[in-house]
Design a protein around this nucleic acid. Structure first.
Length: 243
DNA sequence: AACCGGTTCAACCGCATCAGC
DNA sequence: GGCTGATGCGGTTGAACCGGT
């Protein structure tokens, strides 16, 4: 079942799984372009990555979704739309593929059953919260606990400082975190810090994980070290889901 | 037993974004 | 700023499975 490029496609064999698992255990996750070479697999990097993430990862949970998980999926889908990776991130042991498949095979019908689907499409225009990517300047004064200065916004040596626990209002009284979801222009660059080294943990943090009005400040840095792709709830998201 | 249609889920594909140069 | 390669994501596909006839 080799493709035109000679790369194998289709179902994975037990032997391939062993090779891939051995490779990941030895070299760790990431650097997927090197995995086929390192493992000796005649598979493309995408195939290797997908197989690992969706099937071989040791923390993957198999079996039926619990009622709690189903409930969470429904709520999160209502909130986030088809952002399966985000939803899966709130379900420990579940992959985005799992969630997507489950939604398409079970919940889509359940929530929008044949009769319901037409109604849903016509009436329920779901407002999906899609947090915008933010950039942060690490020297921002309130992150350092002092008054904001123009130079703070513009400059950026690339070290992160502990943020102030209560971010101040901007000059027009508009809380910078309000803009996270409002889409209000003109507040982004002046209220955030851009730091290449922190981009992974901070920019994506805001982009993918943060619901409206999430507490910032010390929580922000404390959580920075934890793995947000696994299971952690900030209370505001929880409130939002329970609303 | 054989066929058929529906369902499930692993895997593929294309695209967007990111990061390094 | 533009280019290029790497990565991640969501949509889609298709083989395997299952139940009904």
């Amino acid at each position: 079942m080799d493709g035109p490029s000679g790369v194998r496609k289709g179902a994975w064999t037990r032997e391939e799984d062993v090779l891939l698992r051995t490779c990941i255990e030895k070299y760790g996750e990431g650097k997927w372009h090197q995995v086929p070479f390192r493992s000796g697999l005649n598979r493309c990097r995408k195939s290797c990555r997908l197989r690992w993430l969706n099937y071989l990862r040791p923390d993957i949970k198999r079996g039926e979704f619990t009622t709690d998980e189903v409930d969470l999926i429904i709520r999160l889908h209502k909130l986030l739309g088809n952002r399966w990776a985000l939803i899966a991130g709130r379900l420990p042991g579940r992959t985005s593929n799992d969630v997507k498949n489950y939604w398409n095979t079970h919940l889509n019908k359940k929530c929008f059953g044949k009769a319901g689907k037409d109604v849903a499409e016509k009436t329920a225009k779901v407002t999906v919260i899609k947090p915008r990517p933010r950039t942060f300047y690490k020297n921002l004064s309130y992150l350092k606990g002092k008054a904001a200065k123009e130079s703070d916004v513009q400059s950026a040596d690339h070290t992160l400082s502990k943020p102030h626990s209560t971010p101040p209002l901007s000059e027009d009284g508009f809380s910078w975190w309000d803009s996270l979801f409002s889409g209000k222009e003109g507040h982004e660059e002046s209220t955030c810090f851009r730091d290449g080294s922190a981009k992974e943990s901070i920019s994506s943090f805001w982009d993918e994980e943060t619901p409206a009005a999430t507490k910032v400040g010390e929580t922000f840095l404390e959580e920075k070290e934890s793995d947000w792709n696994h299971f952690s709830f900030d209370m505001d998201l929880w409130d939002l889901l329970n609303a």
